[in-house]
Amino acid sequence: MTRPITRSDPAVLVRRAREELWRAVGVRDEYAAGQAVFTALDAGVSAEDVLLDVIAPVQHKVGAEWAANRFTVAQEHAATAVHDRIIAALAHRTRGTGPAEARGTVTVACVDGEWHALPARILAEVLSHRGYRVDFLGAQVPTPHLIAHLHQTAPTALAVSSSLPTRIPTAHAVITAAQAIGVPVLAGGAAFGEDGRHARRLGADAWAPDARAAAAVLDRGLPQPRTGAVRQSLDDLPHLADQEYTLVSRSKRQLVKNTLAGLEERLPAMRLYTDAQRERTAEDVAHVVDFLAVALYTDDARLFTDFLDWTGDILQARGVPARVIDPALALLQEELKDFPRALGMLTQGRARYGDDSPAPPAPGPRHDV
C-alpha cells in the first residue's frame, strides 16, 4: 500500500513534483506543469524550494537532453517557455501585495548578448520572496541602458548573469561601470566558471554558484565600491597589453573566411556542400574563433579547451566524429602563427584529438540555443 504524501515529507514532495514537472514539460503540457508545482506548494513546499529544487533541476535536465540530441532546439525552447510562465504564475500566487524594500533593492539583469534569462529570472523570484525589491531587466540588456538604469534607481546591488563565456568582455565592462557609480556587483552563471574564477578575475564584488547562495551573499551584504574609481581592462587583465585578444576579435570575419577557404582547398568533399551546410560550417568555425578570443581575454586556455570538449560531445551525440574540428584548428594555427598565446591554446586544443587522421569537416549543430 502506498503511503500518502503529507506535509511531513518535504523531500518526497519535492521529488514527486520534479518527476511530474519533467513529464509535463516533455509533452509541453503547461496545465500539468502548473498542477505539479502548485500541488507541491499547497502541500507545504516553500516557493523558494519549488523554484530551486523543482523547476531549476528540471530546466537543467532539459538542457542536458538537448545536448544529448534527445530534445530538439524547439523542444528546449518550448520547455523553457512553460517554466517561464509557471514562474510568473507562482510569483502572483505567493508574493505579498506591498513593495518589499526593507532589505534593499537589487537589479537583476543578463549582460548584452545573453539570451538565457531563466537562471536570472529564478534569482529575481528568490530575492523577491526573501523581502528584496527586485528590478528584473531580463535577457540581453545593452550595457549603456543598464548603467543608466542603475544611475536612476541607485540599487543596493547589481546581480549580473551570463551563461555564455563569450560574453565575459561585456560582463567586465558592466562590472567596472557599475562599480564606478557606487553599485556593487554580484556575478553568477556558467560564464564565470564553476568555481567563480572569472568573476574574481574581472573584479566582481562577489560570485555565487546558484540563486540560494546568491541570496545568502546579499543577505550578508556587499562592500560598497568607491564611487568614481574607474578601472581599465588592463588593471584587471594585464596580459591584454599584447593585443592578441583585440586583434583576433577584430579579425574574426577574415579568420573565418580564410579558414573556410583553406578547408575547401584541402578537403575536396567540402566543395559538394549545400549552401545550408556551408553556412552551418561557417557558424561552427565562428564559434571556435569566439571562444579562442575570450580565452585570450581571460588568459585561461581552459575556456577554449572546455568549449572544444563540449562541442565534441555535442557533435558525437549527433553522429559526427569530434575530430572534424581538428582541420579548422590546424588552419587557425597557420593564420595566427605570430600570436604566441593563441598558438599555444590552439595547440592544446588539437592535442584533444591525438594522432587520428583528420576527417572532412561536417556541418555541426548551432550552439546558441
Rank of each mutant, 00 (worst) to 15 (best):
Q179D: 07
P165C: 10
A178W: 03
I168H: 09
L164T: 03
P119T: 05
R130A: 05
A124F: 00
A171E: 12
L164E: 05
L158H: 05
R133N: 11
L137N: 08
V126P: 00
L164D: 11
A171L: 15
S163G: 07
P169E: 12
G138D: 13
H151T: 02
L158W: 08
V183G: 08
A171K: 09
Q179F: 00
L164G: 00
A171S: 10
P144I: 04
A180F: 00
H129P: 01
A154Q: 13
A171R: 06
V141N: 08
T156W: 02
W115M: 14
E125G: 01
G182Y: 01
G138C: 13
A124D: 09
V174P: 03
Q152W: 14
H116A: 06
V141W: 01
T166K: 08
A178P: 14
I168K: 13
H145D: 15
G182A: 09
L146I: 04
L150M: 15
A139V: 14
R130Y: 05
E125H: 06
G138A: 05
P169K: 04
L158R: 07
P169V: 01
R121H: 14
I147G: 03
V160S: 11
L127S: 04
R121I: 06
L146M: 05
T156E: 12
H172E: 14
L164S: 02
H145P: 01
P165V: 00
L127G: 02
L118G: 01
R133K: 14
A154P: 15
A178D: 12
H151E: 14
L150D: 12
Q179K: 08
T156A: 11
A159E: 08
A159L: 07
V183Q: 08
V134P: 00
L137M: 15
H149D: 10
G131R: 11
R133Y: 07
I147R: 10
I175S: 04
G182F: 01
R133P: 00
V183A: 07
A177I: 11
Q179Y: 03
A154H: 15
H116L: 10
